[in-house]
Nucleic acid binder design. Structure first.
Lengths: 248, 248
DNA sequence: TAATTATTGATTATTTTTGAACAAATTAAT
DNA sequence: ATTAATTTGTTCAAAAATAATCAATAATTA
């Protein structure tokens, strides 16, 4: 078995388990530990994985090329729960839109093995879904290097050409009175464009965003078809009354 | 059995199994291992497969996520020289197209600090130019996971909306008689679309591609405005006679 | 038909890869 | 803080694969 071959299997193992020890690799590949170490060392310098004492980690979240390093730490578990709920709403064969928010990004891990098509403007999402079952359609246009996503008029026109089943979107603030709000104009208009192109709009909002209005309010609450959140029952009653179905 | 014949069978075996050892090929073709090695070497330089120690792999399997041209690339140094020459043709403020070939990818390192705009369908290029001076426009459409690039009708329409100064393109084969050729239909049509959108077309071809015709010939040699190569003077005379300016 | 060229196979030398042994460094535990 | 256990880095040797060289065979050309 060649080095290139092992390289693949090592990456595959890391993709599945996130991290593993030298022993694990050695057993899985039926090869000596010293060789595994050499492989890991080279792959680490090639930037394919992160070397730890006694093993290796997937280059994820912490140091991936495309990443939400600063954001992901906060409420990671809560967000993951929301994402899992959201992912359950997806059927095989669906065509969905995903935006470039950090919450939506965390859905990737739960949809990797579904046979669906994802349309997105988020480079981290693309990176995460690369080499998975998912077929990807990337929205074209100017790249916003800070947000690691595609924005602008061209992008919105691109979105307008599609009509999809479901859109999974994030916002920076949501309130029953003023509707949806965001920190920037770019995010707002992309979110709007996606919502228009989709039959059913799912908004992923952790409790900290509920009842808040941020910099720019850009859409009425009626844009929301389904609200996926981890808030308490009592806090979401207002939304239910407005005809929004809420998943907790 | 001729070389052409073996070539086909070798490719077929790789297509089925993904990878194989020299022994396997030798047995399947009932020929000595040394001959297989010679075949594999030539096919590797032709870009038909990836040579490993002890055997060969399908090209797509050998590509690692977003790093397909790091250190393992064939002819890395030669390609780098070509790329450096090509990069010198770029002025500050230029708007350029870059395609998804491995040669063109290596241009990134030489243009990182230029203030230009790059329009591309290649995800590795995007990743490489992220967090640089360069402003990026990503072409939208369906993602081809094997090539790590955007392809398809939507992508071509996106390209058609732009008009740029220069396009930097790669091909799999180029000959004075039959023009440009590629391994696949997708690459061919994207290359054509890019060439049409550009005022001046630079083609980056190392010597191994000159005078070769590959699977699909898709454009006359007149599409080439400038040929950037590392070939010998005597081999490029034919191109100069056709009115193509050549940079060595 | 003879001469030349290209292809193939065999042999040898070189390089690459792998594994083992031991010293140095790092982590964990007392 | 010190010791014990792991892990890693380094060096070396064996095995495998490759490259280089040369002879033999087949194909081509004059």
């Amino acid at each position: 078995m060649s080095f290139q071959n092992r390289k693949q299997i090592i990456l595959k193992i890391l993709e599945e388990r996130g991290e593993a020890e030298v022993k694990d690799f050695a057993q899985a590949l039926e090869i000596s530990e010293i060789t595994i170490r050499r492989d890991l060392q080279q792959m680490a310098t090639d930037g394919l994985l992160f070397r730890t004492h006694g093993g290796a980690m997937k280059l994820s979240l912490a140091q991936m090329p495309f990443t939400f390093a600063n954001k992901t730490a906060v409420n990671a578990k809560e967000k993951d729960k929301i994402c899992q709920l959201a992912a359950q709403q997806i059927q095989e064969g669906d065509i969905i839109l995903m935006d470039c928010g950090s919450t939506v990004f965390r859905m990737c891990q739960f949809i990797k093995n579904k046979r669906i098509k994802v349309i997105t403007n988020s480079l981290p999402v693309v990176y995460e879904l690369m080499n998975s079952q998912v077929s990807i359609n990337l929205i074209g246009g100017e790249i916003d290097q800070e947000r690691q996503a595609v924005h602008g008029r061209i992008a919105e026109e691109h979105i307008a050409r599609y009509k999809v089943d479901k859109a999974f979107l994030g916002v920076d603030g949501i309130s029953p009175e003023n509707g949806l709000s965001a920190f920037g104009e770019n995010e707002a208009s992309i979110t709007l464009a996606m919502a228009k192109a989709s039959a059913k709009n799912y908004f992923l909002c952790d409790a900290s965003k509920l009842g808040k209005d941020k910099y720019l309010t850009f859409a009425p609450i009626t844009l929301v078809d389904v609200l996926v959140t981890n808030a308490l029952e009592k806090d979401i009653l207002v939304y239910r009354e407005k005809g929004i179905s809420v998943i907790i």
